[in-house]
Amino acid sequence: MPASNTASNTAMAGEIAKFDALATRWWDPAGPMAPLHRMNPLRCGWIARRLAAATGRAGEDLSGLAILDVGCGAGLASEGLARKGAAVTGLDAAGEALAAARAHAAAGGLSIDYRQGLPEDLAAEERRFDAVVALEVIEHVADRPAFLAALAAVTRPGGMVFLSTLNRTPKAFLFAKLGAEYLLRLLPRGTHDWRMFVTPAELGAEARRAGLRTTDIAGMVPGLPRQEWRESRDVSVNYIVAMRRD
């Protein structure tokens, strides 16, 4: 699929270029995506358990389910979900990141359908998935309501949408912006714009207008240095949400 026009409702050219520039180091667990590497087991496990329960499966079994990973980057979540049995389509507007995703999946013997484009492209093709995930993506899009509507459009009725993002709180500004980017240098400077963070209430209201109903929410907090993240009731910084399409 050719790259979509960056003047579309949801894509931002600057954000695409930002993540394309990180493509060659995306899979380095000690590189600029190190926080996502440590967060990924929590994200994928949380999603898998809820999706398996909603579809009558045990544990984290996703076999036979078609999942779309929107804003997949170089494929961290795509590979995590594929290893749990899902048939995964990874979608991103960043071509260099997708090239890294395809190479890494091939090296690991994983069959993942990586496509360049936007969710509205697949909606125009009338594609539908059992579940759609967009992890650490919505804080980088140009139009949240349009993005949520596109996610709903590519989810089958009764299917699920999973989002993870950052809350717009003073604590998130301190830890996720100043701390992570400037003090600890866990992320490249300029990775996030605090003004684009979204509160759970805002996200829930916008999702309802798109035909999505929130069914679960949890906070995600980092463990000790070099340890994986853990689930928490504290949603003041990072949080993950499950939604069902009506």
Rank of each mutant, 00 (worst) to 15 (best):
T24Q: 07
G71C: 11
E231R: 14
W27T: 03
A134P: 03
T165A: 13
A201G: 09
M220A: 15
F173S: 05
A100D: 02
A142C: 12
A134S: 13
L186G: 13
P119T: 12
A207W: 03
A52N: 02
L174Y: 14
Q116D: 08
R50H: 04
S164P: 06
A180F: 07
L224V: 05
Q116E: 15
G95I: 12
M1E: 11
R128A: 14
E231F: 00
A142S: 15
I112N: 00
I67Q: 04
P222T: 13
P35K: 10
P32V: 02
G80R: 00
E120H: 13
F129M: 00
T215L: 12
E228R: 13
K84P: 02
N238T: 11
E231T: 13
A13E: 14
K18D: 08
M196T: 15
L76A: 04
N5F: 06
F129A: 00
A86G: 05
A131L: 01
R208G: 13
L22K: 09
A77E: 00
L166W: 12
H192A: 10
A97M: 11
F19H: 09
F147C: 14
R209G: 11
N167Y: 11
A149S: 15
W46V: 03
E79R: 07
R230A: 15
K18N: 10
L186W: 13
F129D: 02
A105R: 03
T215W: 01
P170C: 12
W46M: 05
L135D: 03
L91S: 07
G159L: 04
P188R: 05
Y182Q: 06
A124P: 08
G45I: 01
L135C: 00
A93W: 04
V133A: 02
P225F: 12
D113S: 09
P41M: 07
R244H: 05
Y182R: 04
L98Y: 02
A87Q: 07
A34H: 12
R25K: 08
R50E: 01
L68P: 04
R38P: 00
A146E: 13
A99E: 07
P2M: 15
E202Y: 05
H192S: 10
L118N: 14
K171N: 09
T155I: 03
R208Y: 02
A218C: 11
R209F: 00
R144M: 10
F175E: 15
L118S: 15
D193S: 14
A242Q: 06
A131H: 02
R43W: 01
L62Q: 01
G211W: 06
A142W: 11
T169Y: 07
A87S: 10
L224Y: 00
P2V: 13
I47H: 00
G31E: 02
A152L: 10
A30C: 12
L163T: 06
L212N: 04
R50T: 01
N238P: 10
L151W: 06
D121V: 04
R115W: 14
L186I: 10
S78T: 07
K171Y: 09
M243N: 00
